[in-house]
Design a protein around this nucleic acid. Structure first.
Length: 506
RNA sequence: GCCUCGUUCGUCUAGCGGCCUUGGACGCCGCCCUUUCAAGGCGGAGAUCACGGGUUCGAAUCCCGUACGAGGUACCA
């Protein structure tokens, strides 16, 4: 690729020097919600777009909050959302290990380097003292900040503290004056006053690093070229910049992604109105639809294209089209998009993917337990064909089509009787329909023709005439086209159900 | 409180100085199709481009301020 007639944007220039490497670095402290996966998805798309690598790294340094099973859940979610990865848990890779708890020695090594170069120091302050200090500062309406007492300890004092076996953490020594420039590729330069920078803890008393140190060491060692993370990190970015500088490392290109918000405009969080991928799967959302939807949350292709396959997204995805203002997650639009993807499925695929939802136990949203499994595939295909364009999620199929499978229909007799008609008239109409139906070839075109003729001859209006039949055979007022439904249901069941309806009206 | 980011229809967004009395999509409403429900087609309502100043021949687009929203302010990420 030769492109010499224009000066590339700085970001492109730097990025083009090497194969892009991007990472998704979740902490296993709970179940990743779709906002988190959106971040992963952007990184993944860009890696695939450029032919770069996509890495998963587990940031499990907060041992106390680590939730068992979270990593498996996370990886399963990636798989479900159709994202693979080149390096990470399970598959390993040349830059491993990919769990931060297994890289402890590395962080300690660089912490020592920082201490030696005067960019970090041991702090012996107890949590009690820190809490006290904070309370005082708050009372005085001062910004809560570590007072740097330990930063100015003499070597003798330090030695004495160590000899006394005091517990310590390591804090980074931030510059006291001047400014720090954070260059965000999406927003441009952001300037921070160094007086606002706290000497944050980079190594905890348990010997593990905090995020601030760990991600820098790992991103550097793993050769990460672009870092995509939530915009909640902007405020700690200047401290990260300082640590990079202290270590003498090049800073990867930083992209702070806009937040995904809930209906209340608050950032989506695990315990707060954020669906997990599992919940979406259980409801019968197609991962390819969710993928498409998520890609459009904070990124856009142009002024009209919204339905893009994963392949198209890979081809189209560039970082410069990421937006900067937070967006509310709109479940309504996801439902619509899911419907679009369902309609695009071939009947065969639809059956294959819907069957598990129908066969799951009733309590989980499957067909009534009285219906024996496994379901007849050919029959189910005929059923699903009728419902195909009506489905919004795979999970709702069972409820909508259960009448094709159960023996007994349950519905209110009232539903049988159209407005402006009484029970007797309805019964009479049903009886006539039933008598004619019994004589017909069981094909929907034949039935429709004959029945329409009957309606015309007897002066029945289509609505009130066909309506009761629909309720009689399906127990529902909203159902697929009547005669196709009858055809699939079969003569015997159809006539039997109409008879039962007639009996109800007697 | 302090620091930082953000602000175009209810929602997702297009827009990077003239093509915009802002285009698309979801949702909503109406009409058509129709035995119901969908799907589909057509149409509509819906944004003083948060507000106020500037810069400019010209601003949704650039600058400043204000308001509002969000995020951060942990030995959490």
């Amino acid at each position: 690729m030769t492109q010499i007639n224009h000066l590339p944007h700085e970001a492109e220039d730097r990025a083009s020097q090497k194969v892009p490497r991007l990472r998704f670095a979740p902490s296993p402290t709970g179940f990743q919600h779709i906002g988190g996966y959106r971040t992963a998805l952007f990184s993944w798309l860009f890696a695939r777009h450029t032919g770069g690598q996509f890495i998963i790294r587990i940031e499990d340094t907060d041992v106390a909050r680590t939730v068992e099973g979270a990593v498996d859940y996370l990886i399963d979610g990636m798989k479900w959302l159709l994202m693979d990865y080149d390096e990470g848990p399970l598959v390993g890779g040349p830059y491993g290990p990919y769990y931060q708890t297994q890289r402890k020695a590395l962080y300690q090594q660089y912490t020592n380097q920082l201490i030696e170069s005067g960019h970090a120091y041991r702090c012996y302050c107890t949590p009690e003292r820190l809490a006290e200090m904070r309370a005082e500062q708050e009372a005085k309406k001062l910004p809560p900040r570590y007072d740097r007492r330990c930063r100015y300890l003499t070597p003798e004092e330090r030695a004495a503290n160590d000899a006394a076996g005091l517990k310590w953490v390591v804090r980074s020594a931030m510059p006291i004056e001047g400014e720090t420039l954070v260059h965000d590729e999406l927003r441009g330069d952001i300037t921070f006053n160094n007086t606002d920078l706290d000497d944050t803890v980079i190594l905890k008393s348990d010997g593990l690093p905090t995020y601030h140190l760990a991600h820098i060491v790992d991103d550097h060692l793993m050769g990460i070229t672009h870092t995509l993370r939530g915009e909640e990190w902007i405020s700690s970015a200047p401290r990260h910049v300082q640590i990079y500088k202290a270590l003498g490392w090049e800073i990867p290109l930083m992209y702070h992604l806009p937040s995904v918000l809930g209906k209340d405009k608050k950032k989506l969080s695990k315990r707060h109105n954020a669906p997990s991928w599992k919940a979406l799967e259980e409801q019968g959302y197609l991962p390819e639809a969710v993928f498409n939807f998520l890609a459009l949350l904070g990124w856009s292709y142009d002024d009209k294209t919204e339905i893009l396959t994963q392949e198209e997204l890979i081809k189209a995805f560039t970082l410069d089209r990421i937006g900067i203002s937070g967006g509310i997650y709109d479940p309504e639009k996801l439902i619509w998009m899911n419907g679009v993807y369902i309609r695009q499925l071939s009947l065969d695929k639809l059956v294959e993917r819907t069957l598990p939802y129908m066969e799951r136990p009733e309590i989980q949203g499957g067909l009534p337990d009285s219906v024996s499994r496994p379901l007849d595939r050919a029959y189910t295909a005929r059923v699903l064909q009728l419902e195909h364009e009506r489905l919004k999620t795979l999970g709702e199929a069972a409820e909508v089509i259960s009448f094709f499978y159960v023996d007994e229909l349950t519905y209110e007799t009232e539903m049988l009787i159209p407005k402006k008609m009484d029970a007797a008239a309805t019964r009479e109409a049903l009886q006539q329909a039933r008598d004619l139906l019994a004589t017909l070839t069981w094909e929907h075109e034949v039935m429709e023709g004959a029945m329409r003729q009957l309606a015309q001859e007897r002066g029945f209006k289509p609505g009130p005439f066909f309506g009761p039949q629909r309720v009689a055979i399906s127990g529902r007022t909203a159902a697929p086209p009547l005669f196709e439904t009858m055809e699939v249901l079969g003569r015997e069941k159809t006539l039997e159900r109409i008879d039962k309806a007639i009996a109800r009206l007697s």
